[in-house]
Design a protein around this nucleic acid. Structure first.
Lengths: 334, 334
DNA sequence: ACCCGATGGTTGATCGGTAAAACCCATCCG
DNA sequence: CGGATGGGTTTTACCGATCAACCATCGGGT
């Protein structure tokens, strides 16, 4: 910076103005400075800037071990979109690993107190998420991808995808294809996301005048769960012909159960998953699934973060987006 | 830092010593300083440190758009392992998006010149990779995950997985299961990785005394490729019974071709993929595949980076690791 | 008595930007 | 003609850690 200034014969500050508030300089000086900047290939030092402004211009993002969250590489796609949005806003994405929520809290504390990042994006939230409690207590800026179930909603910054609207779409789609007995394969345990998605199914079923009686079953998020639950339902006297599933993983299990019984997915039965993960592409027949608008989610997440950083005591904002149904052979054969 | 110093009644520098070179202080002073650090919850400011040391202690990592590289989320797992290794070495992982190699070069230049990171990890390398040319020219420190095919190998820092050794294992495994006509489904185009993997297959076939004649076929990395190539081979008079595939994607296609012909994978035919991606778990029957030792790769990558940063003109190091065969139902039925 | 090195700690400069205020000089106005 | 105005630029003072040099004390060897 000093070199550029010396070369043009102006002060350091003038160089700074040229790059950050060009309108404060006369057109001629501006041009001369920019020319020198270009010739010398000058680029401002990020560390110095962070130090002075007390803001590293970076958002923290937690990476999950692959053993978990292989549930679809959704977070991997989200991370990409987030980094695009961050880049656009001149922010860096700092990735830190954490196997458990406790560890994540640990690391968050560490990198926040050292001024390595100035805010966080929280994903894979659970009911009464301890991370959110922690961040709220400390007043650390964050935006959560996923509603903070169990916390005051209107008081927290979040972006989420409307799971209920998604499962409604799924039911509508199956109903249109002639299905009337549509089951719901969900997660067990207390879980805001699961409840949300189930409620959408229930509402849509009611509005079509279909019975939901004995058609909602639950289990852990495993392929085997989907296979067993769907299998049990299919072995009933009046078996369902449609399956709305809380995740692709469970849906893939359901597809397997169908095949084992000689039922052609798309023809005899319809199966819909959730997340449109890689598995949904790979499986045969291709799985109809609800895709989360990750690019939009990322853009809003970044926008909310910037808003929040600009005005620390602004009113919390929330964004709820609709998933879109990606139709494949599991509901509509080729 | 000044506050801690004031509280203990020592100078700033003493606090620094307490945290960074504890042996330079007397045990009593050390204890008193550390106590104050703890009580005040002091944490050093990373930006200030980066500024002074001229090293941000961060490694840059490029994120691929999800549309590409869905080839298995291998990079996502690698990123996790890399962040673990980096964290252990007190380094941050800075993620930047780039859709093309040209864009990546652009971004690398940007964040390196602004001192945002001090080195890079390059993945998904190709033959004559332009990024490597660029980085070598500029003398920017980097380690490549994947051999820099087309560049002087011994002159570049890289960590890689021995593809040839992998496909050899695959052939051995299939041979053990009684297969003698084992085909190779590869990638088309000039590609170091592909050639490497194919050479392993060829070598193993020869050592078993099996013919390779007309058994190696190639195409783009798509499920449809595997399906068509395997289909064509299966429809021959003397069809192969084993398939060693350059990727899980192609292997999944091959599995599909088998099923369409009523052949039971694991019994009638054996199929082996490469990468042990999520697809290999999800597919039915489960796909036997070659898993890359990503944790090891990440650890070595980080080690090489640190070596290189410590001594910029040290001799380049290389690490070649063996993949391990993960056996599933596509070669050994339950 | 003198010098020497080791031990334990201090001082001041510095990294490269940015914020805030001061400054200069023309123009405008009563 | 003096003072207010304001655009354009400079000055000064940081941000918070680290580096290099320096100082004080003390024990030991000659």
């Amino acid at each position: 910076m000093a070199m550029v200034a010396a070369r043009v014969g102006v002060s350091k500050q003038t160089v700074h103005y040229a790059l950050n508030s060009p309108d404060r300089l006369s057109p001629t000086t501006l041009r001369r400075v920019l020319k020198a900047v270009d010739e010398l290939g000058y680029r401002p030092n990020q560390a110095a800037r962070s130090l002075r402004t007390q803001s590293p211009q970076a958002v923290g993002f937690r990476l999950l071990p692959t053993t978990q969250g292989q549930s679809g590489g959704v977070w991997a796609s989200f991370l990409y979109e987030l980094s695009v949005a961050a880049h656009r806003a001149d922010h860096a994405v700092y990735c830190h690993p954490a196997a458990t929520d406790e560890e994540e809290i640990q690391v968050i504390q560490e990198i926040f107190s050292t001024n390595t990042v100035d805010c966080f994006v929280i994903t894979a939230t659970q009911d009464h998420d301890p991370r959110i409690t922690f961040l709220r207590e400390r007043g650390i800026p964050f935006v959560s991808f996923g509603r903070p179930w169990g916390h005051p909603m209107s008081d927290t910054w979040w972006v989420d995808v409307d799971g209920a609207a998604g499962t409604e779409q799924a039911v509508d789609h199956l109903a249109e294809r002639g299905h009337r007995r549509i089951a719901y394969l969900g997660w067990d345990g207390r879980n805001g996301f699961g409840d949300d998605r189930e409620s959408g199914w229930r509402r849509a079923m009611r509005s079509h005048g279909f019975s939901t009686r004995d058609l909602a079953v639950r289990g852990p998020d495993e392929i085997s769960t989907g296979r067993e639950l769907a299998g049990r339902l299919l072995d009933r006297k009046t078996a369902p012909t449609g399956f709305v599933c809380v995740s692709d993983t469970i849906a893939i299990g359901a597809l397997r159960a169908c095949r084992e019984r000689g039922l052609a997915a798309g023809h005899d039965v319809g199966v819909v998953g959730f997340d449109d993960s890689v598995g949904a592409h790979f499986v045969d027949p291709g799985l109809t699934s609800l895709a989360q608008p990750l690019e939009l989610v990322a853009r809003h997440t970044m926008r909310l973060l910037l808003d929040r950083l600009k005005d620390p005591d602004a009113k919390a904002e929330q964004v709820l987006l609709r998933p879109t149904l990606v139709v494949r052979e599991s509901t509509v054969p080729l």
